[in-house]
Write a protein that binds this DNA or RNA. Structure first.
Lengths: 120, 120
DNA sequence: ATAATGCGTAACTATACGGTTACACGAAAT
DNA sequence: ATTTCGTGTAACCGTATAGTTACGCATTAT
């Protein structure tokens, strides 16, 4: 099977992940596919609300839908999360080096800390 | 220097990252500290708008502010991004194994594909 | 002392968001 | 044929969000 290179919207992914319910839905699908109703039943909000979250996740390509009779199975598509991961990549180096820019900045400041700052 | 273990809000981090301008601000600070005004000047929106984004980033602890005279230097604090990273961790295994649950699902479906599905 | 600079906040506005109830519709059951 | 089930969408509502302009207040310059 020939694998075709596809890119997803980083914007859509970050936006989708901003909502805790949507992240929870993804966490649920991480363990396996579920029909829409079953997903809805695990949350304290109404079914239509979940349906809309699913639509948004669908449009961000984070989940895919597969119809089977009258139910619709949702399953995870982790691919767009690569966009989030690649963005994070630039920041991982900071904590991996155990040196935040904060620390660097503070140290730099300390170097010429002779101008007598306010103690406030 | 004794390092104290601190945890940040995953919720706040994800929420802060949902806005493209805020991500761009972080990307800018990744290269070094900048005063508020200088940050604002690099964006097409007004200075107060940036000021509010900075406040939100500050409250999410993604940036820190340091006053120097009449300017305020902002610098990156990448720590809270660890929360995002740790959430992503669960998903990385999917694409690292080059096996999405989609693929698994499709294969599982294929196994008992005898119930004559609609070709639609 | 007065003016200019740098920056945050208040007030306001339009739009986006997330939730709810009512409804539509195909698939399965009776 | 009719009812029930599973699920999506429409309409509506209150709150959050992101932008703008006006303003306030230190700090630095004149």
């Amino acid at each position: 099977m020939r694998s075709r290179k596809v890119t997803y919207s980083r914007e859509a992914a970050f936006h989708a992940l901003a909502d805790p319910t949507r992240r929870a839905v993804l966490d649920m699908l991480r363990r396996g596919s579920h029909p829409a109703g079953q997903i809805a039943r695990t949350f304290p909000i109404s079914r239509p609300a979940i349906s809309r979250h699913l639509r948004l996740l669908r449009r961000a390509h984070l989940v895919q839908e597969r119809r089977e009779g009258r139910r619709r199975w949702y399953y995870l598509n982790p691919e767009p999360l690569k966009e989030v991961d690649s963005w994070l990549e630039h920041y991982r180096v900071f904590w991996q080096a155990n040196l935040t820019s904060l620390k660097a900045f503070v140290e730099a400041e300390h170097a010429h800390e002779t101008k007598g700052g306010k103690t406030h």
